[in-house]
Amino acid sequence: MTRTIAQIEEWLESGTRAADPLDHAGELVKAGEEVLENWIVAHGGTPTEETRENFRLLALHRQGARGDPSFNACRETCREIAYHYNLVKLEAAEDRGQDTVAMMRLVTKHLVLFIGGKLKEAGLGDFCCSSRSLRSKPDRKVDYLGV
């Protein structure tokens, strides 16, 4: 079952984690997916099961960004999570990865805070980098999450 954003934030704060870096990295990717699922469901969509570049996280981000340019403000954050997962996987084979997974946790937390923030304040990310005005409608070239 998908956790709420508050539960994920609480989990990240609690320090509870799998002992093995790669297992923990998997937990963080899963947490990122759940955050995106929360966003998509809140906007009337059904979270995709597809993957992009082997990550469902990236497919979910793409789905979440449809019709809302401001959502692209967390695109690089999602890509960094995927990148860090691959890095941990590589390092785990050499019995390393603790520092990388610690950083991955902070990157995941940023995604949680940003999307959690956007669910409270839709304008987050809107006023700065998306250049979308308050009055403009979502991009008509794309489906608005099936709403």
Binding site: A73, C74, E76, T77, E80, Y83, H84, M103, L106, V107, H110, F114, G117, E121, G123, L124, G125, D126, F127, C128, C129
Partner: peptide
């Protein structure tokens, strides 16, 4: 630094 372009919530 993986958060070099991350949102700081500036406008809020």
């Amino acid at each position: 630094f993986p958060l070099k372009t991350a949102c700081c919530g500036g406008a809020h």
